[in-house]
Every structure is written in C-alpha cells, then in structure tokens.
C-alpha cells in the first residue's frame, strides 16, 4: 500500500496577499443592477417582437431591418447585448472559479470565455450599427424580396 506523505504538522498555511481591489464589489453590484435592467429590456424586446402587431408572424429579415433603422431600437438592442453578455460572462467567471480546482484549468477556461464573449460583443455591436438588409452590389438572387422594390 502506498504510503502518503504527510506535511509537517505546523507548516505555515499560505494565504494570498490582499489585493485591495474593488473589482469584486463592483462585479457583485453590476450583477444586481444589470439583472434588473435586463428584465425590463428582455421583456420589452419579447413584447415588441413576439406579441405586439401581428405577433410572431411578423418576424423576418425585413422586420429586424426596420427596427434597426430606428436609433431607439439600435440603442435598446445594443444595451441589451452588452448587459446580457457582461452579466452572463461575469456569471460564468464566478462559476468557473467556484468549480475549478487547478489554477491552470481556471485560467484556460476563463480565457476561452473572455475570447468568446469578446467576439460576440464586437460582432453584435457591428451588426446593430451596420445592418443593411439590401447591400448595394450584392448578388440579386441572394437579396430579400422587398429590396427589389
């Protein structure tokens, strides 16, 4: 039977140095505040897209294009995208640090998370502001029907 090595009985227990950073405080506060704002934004989004007007049947390429022609919906969707991504990323960050035991695993998973979130945020922001349902010079067979009008 393998004999386990027993550390010296009164070996000094190492604690991390305090960082004096306010980051965790603001992260905690951000989760609460963004949560409240997200509830309003998401239910407003669901109501406008799926309920008002002709409901879920109105939802198509043109509907989204029409919404994003209005700066109000651009800002709405932009704020919703940013808050949802930051809220979700921070939640995943805490879950990763809660469940990973090795620092290496933690760093690898969190790095993957940050890169993935970064891509989604950048791409999403780009789409919200540059969305053009009828790009000029595109292959006409690929364009939506209303573009020909």
């Amino acid at each position: 039977m393998a004999t386990p090595t027993i550390p010296a009985p009164r070996a000094e227990y190492d604690r991390h140095k305090t960082t004096r950073s306010q980051f965790e405080l603001f992260a905690w506060l951000f989760m609460r505040l963004s949560g409240v704002v997200l509830v309003i934004l998401i239910f407003g989004h669901l109501f406008v897209n799926l309920w008002s007007g002709s409901g879920v049947h109105q939802l198509d390429f043109g509907f989204v294009g029409g919404k994003w022609a209005n700066p109000f919906w651009q800002i709405w969707d932009l704020v919703m995208l940013w808050l949802a991504m930051l809220h979700g990323t921070n939640g995943m960050r805490t879950i990763i640090s809660d469940y990973t035991e090795k620092p290496g695993t933690r760093v690898a998973l969190q790095l993957t998370l940050y890169i993935a979130s970064g891509i989604v945020v950048v791409l999403g922001t780009l789409v919200v502001f540059t969305f053009n349902p009828c790009p000029t010079g595109a292959d006409p067979s690929l364009l939506a029907s209303f573009c020909k009008a």
Binding site: H16, T18, S21, F23, E24, L25, A27, W28, T94, D98
Partner: peptide, 14 residues
Amino acid sequence: LEVLNDKEGVWRCR
C-alpha cells in the same frame, strides 16, 4: 472590511 472586500472575501458567498 478591507480584508473582506478582497477576491476571497464576502463576494465569494453564493
């Protein structure tokens, strides 16, 4: 409070 404001302080409470 300074000690408990840290990364390993109260904010880790779920």
